[in-house]
Simulated assay, not measured.
Amino acid sequence: MFLWLVIVLMVSGSVSSNEYKLHWVIPPANVSTSLNDWASGQRFQVGDTIRFKYKKDSVMQVTKEGYMQCNSSHPRFYSNTGKTRFMFDHSVPYYFISGTSGHCEKGQKMIVEVMTHDRTTTSVAPTPAIAVWLCFFSFTLSLVA
């Protein structure tokens, strides 16, 4: 019985993560939206990932200063595989730029704001009503057995 209770609590406390797919390209000159517009429309959380898809390019995570200046000389992360998967492990802003010369200046850069998980949905402690129900259920089972 105790094992069943532990399993129920583990399942109720699990947190899912999302994967976002992004075509990592220079935004067309005739389009008024940017990669930041796309990113700001998402709700990234710790544990989520972005899958960057691109050709003959690269993706870099840089500092805020590197982002502002399109400076690719000291990236925190670099990949040029064409299908880069990047997981968010902290609740901070992430700054991405293209490592291909001139692409960042043409708008191929993005800021991703990562939030922490909402504690109300990730708590492993049962609510009082569930706790009372579980106690009643386990008591009832002990009477039947």
Rank of each mutant, 00 (worst) to 15 (best):
T63A: 03
K64L: 10
E65T: 12
E65V: 11
G66Q: 00
Y67H: 11
Y67S: 03
M68L: 14
M68C: 06
M68W: 08
Q69W: 04
Q69S: 12
N71C: 07
S72V: 03
S72M: 05
S73A: 12
H74P: 09
H74Y: 14
H74Q: 15
P75V: 00
P75Q: 05
F77K: 05
F77L: 10
Y78N: 09
S79L: 11
N80D: 15
N80M: 12
N80G: 15
T81S: 15
G82Q: 08
T84A: 10
R85F: 14
F86T: 02
F86V: 04
M87D: 06
M87W: 07
M87L: 08
F88E: 02
D89M: 12
H90W: 13
H90D: 14
S91T: 08
S91D: 11
S91C: 06
V92W: 12
V92M: 14
Y94Q: 07
Y94F: 14
Y94K: 04
Y95P: 02
F96T: 04
I97K: 00
S98K: 00
S98Q: 00
S98T: 00
G99R: 01
G99A: 03
T100Q: 06
T100A: 06
T100M: 06
T100K: 07
S101C: 00
G102T: 03
G102N: 09
G102D: 09
G102F: 05
